[in-house]
């Protein structure tokens, strides 16, 4: 797997972060870089304490494609998303079975540290959360500073990431203002730019537009469409139209009842899930007949 760097900067620029304290990378270990990776979840079940919240989820998120996770609230979409980059481990009682593989490497295995996993599998949250103590430019570079990566031409990287996130035009003259001086939609795009700066191979988005107005949502969807050539995107959304607009593949999560674990009812190409679903529950859900 070769690392392609758009700026022509030395390719080991991010390798140093990837190997940070872990010695040379093992064979088959996925480096951080600019190519989208395949993310494969196999038989993932999850618990919070003794409460099982996910039941044997198997889903392949294809490289360079946008995969949408849809379903009613509380059915485990966000939990599943956070399992993909080990963010769910922040909850002390969380437990897991099954495996998640990034280009064939188990992210829960010994080959990848948790920080390395998160460096490769970035995340954008529901509410925009730029760092208030940093300027716009510092926010973009925050991931590199936080992972201890040296960056040679920081200005170019800031510009590149803001351009990819569709924010450069609005912020080029105010890079030294605080990140929280931006509007909500701009803050969310700043968070996307911040995630892109560490060159993740997968980007997880947890309802990234639910706190935004329709215009900002449109801008972010446009950003997603542009990004998916460089990075595999997994997006959780409650908005059926959004799922249809941006995603190539789609997975519907449902609960069988109160207190039951969530599971995948149907997964496949978005057009098929929406236009020709195999499961009647899928047809009911995507056409708004329940949920």
């Amino acid at each position: 797997m070769t690392t392609v760097n758009q700026l022509g900067a030395p390719t080991d620029q991010f390798g140093s972060a990837a190997n940070h304290g872990a010695g040379p990378p093992g064979p088959g270990m996925a480096p951080a870089g600019n190519t989208p990776a395949r993310l494969e979840a196999t038989d993932v079940s999850a618990w919070f304490g003794s409460n099982k919240v996910l039941e044997r989820i198997s889903l392949t998120m294809e490289p360079g494609k946008v995969t949408a996770l849809i379903g009613p609230s509380g059915c485990g979409k966000s939990t599943f998303l956070r399992i993909l980059n080990r963010m769910h481990e922040l909850i002390p009682t969380a437990a897991l079975s099954g495996s998640v593989a990034l280009d064939g490497v188990d992210v829960y295995g010994p080959q990848l540290r948790v920080t390395e996993t998160r460096l490769r599998v970035g995340m954008v949250f529901q509410r925009p959360n730029p760092f208030p103590s940093m300027t716009i430019a510092q926010n973009v570079l925050a991931g590199l500073r936080l992972s201890g990566t040296r960056v040679q031409n920081a200005d170019d990287l800031v510009q590149e990431c803001l351009e990819r996130a569709g924010l450069w035009r609005e912020t080029r003259n105010r890079l030294n203002e605080s990140g929280v001086s931006l509007s909500g939609g701009q803050q969310q795009r700043l968070c996307i730019a911040r995630s892109l700066a560490v060159r993740p191979r997968v980007l997880l988005m947890d309802e990234p537009c639910s706190a935004l107005d329709p215009i900002s949502t449109g801008v972010i969807e446009e950003t997603i469409r542009k990004l998916c050539h460089d990075v595999t995107i997994v997006i959780v959304t409650h908005n059926m139209q959004q799922a249809q607009r941006v995603s190539h593949n789609c997975a519907l999560f449902l609960l069988d009842g109160e207190g039951m674990p969530g599971h995948i009812v149907e997964a496949g190409p978005t057009t098929q899930v929406f236009d020709d679903p195999r499961d009647p529950r899928t047809a009911d859900y995507v056409h708004g007949r329940f949920g």
Binding site: T115, N129, A142, S147, R194
Partner: peptide, 21 residues
Amino acid sequence: GSLREAALALGSPQWRMILRV
């Protein structure tokens, strides 16, 4: 807490998250 999550999701070790964020 969302700032801590954001920092950790960027691949930050906990000590850097505390120090820098």
